[in-house]
């Protein structure tokens, strides 16, 4: 891996989202503030899920995780799609960049955007609650690994999409619904027994639950299972994306 070449891709990707901060950073901060305010404070002050924690502390990890997922996905998918659409991708295809360098550059750019968005939300949350960090290491592991996974998913979307509308299909019909029923706003113990079983097949439940454990020490799953799942998912997705880049699928006509 050549660090100069990789650095150029990372710089291009980070400059891309820093050029449009209202869309890429400020919008998620405002929407997270509203979630914290409405669900955490206004409605949350009337909800007591568990004796030992406030509702705002319970929902904050889910709000953070939603934004990590959507920022990483949005960054890599739109970046790759627009580069294909405007043929700016030819700049990289005609250069000596290796496929690993190309993909890693997109991923680092998307992780950077997710981390900035998550940090901003965390700082905003400090105005409303203690925003605990019980296990800092786990917090970074879950946030960064989730961002890596969804930046790779975003690359698949960016390769597959033929028109702009395609970019939002996965987010609208799969990711957002699964996130909302993945334990962002409620404990799965609140669900009927049969739905609890189904909820455990939702991968987003493990992401939210892992981040919640890292922040408030509360978990409804096996943390090590989440670690294995996230690591395996990241390796598998990287291999799929690398294979498609090597074959030139939708990249080299």
């Amino acid at each position: 891996m050549n660090l100069v070449r990789l650095g150029a891709v990372v710089k291009r990707e980070t400059q891309r989202f820093l050029r449009i901060p209202i869309q890429t950073l400020i919008a998620p901060w405002i929407s997270a503030t509203l979630y914290i305010l409405v669900f955490g404070l206004i409605i949350g002050s009337h909800i007591q899920l568990f004796e030992e924690m406030s509702y705002i502390d319970f929902v904050l990890p889910g709000i953070l995780m939603m934004n990590v997922v959507l920022s990483a996905l949005g960054q890599s998918s739109t970046s790759l799609f627009f580069q294909r659409w405007t043929r700016v991708i030819h700049e990289t295809l005609t250069s000596p960049l290796s496929y690993v360098e190309m993909i890693t550059g997109y991923v680092i750019g998307a992780v950077a955007r997710s981390v900035i968005v998550a940090t901003g939300i965390y700082v905003i949350a400090l105005f409303f609650t203690g925003a605990n960090l019980s296990h800092v290491g786990w917090f970074f592991f879950y946030a960064v690994m989730t961002a890596i996974i969804f930046s790779l998913v975003g690359l698949l979307v960016g390769l597959w999409a033929e028109k702009m509308e395609h970019l939002s299909i996965l987010q609208t019909f799969v990711i957002t619904p699964l996130l909302y029923v993945g334990g962002v706003f409620n404990s799965i113990s609140m669900l009927p027994e049969k739905l609890q079983m189904i909820a455990r097949f939702n991968p987003f439940f493990y992401l939210v639950d892992g981040l919640r454990y890292s922040m408030i020490g509360f978990t409804e799953s096996n943390i090590m299972g989440g670690v294995i799942g996230l690591s395996a998912g990241a390796f598998l997705l990287f291999w799929i994306v690398l294979t498609l880049f090597k074959r030139g699928w939708k990249l080299r006509v």
């Binding site: 050549n2 100069v4 070449r5 650095g7 150029a8 891709v9 710089k11 291009r12 400059q15 700049e91 990289t92 250069s95 000596p96 960049l97």
Partner: peptide, 11 residues
């Protein structure tokens, strides 16, 4: 800026 990126891609 574009030339700077492209120079970077070429190491």
């Amino acid at each position: 800026v574009t030339m700077d990126f492209v120079g970077g891609y070429f190491g």
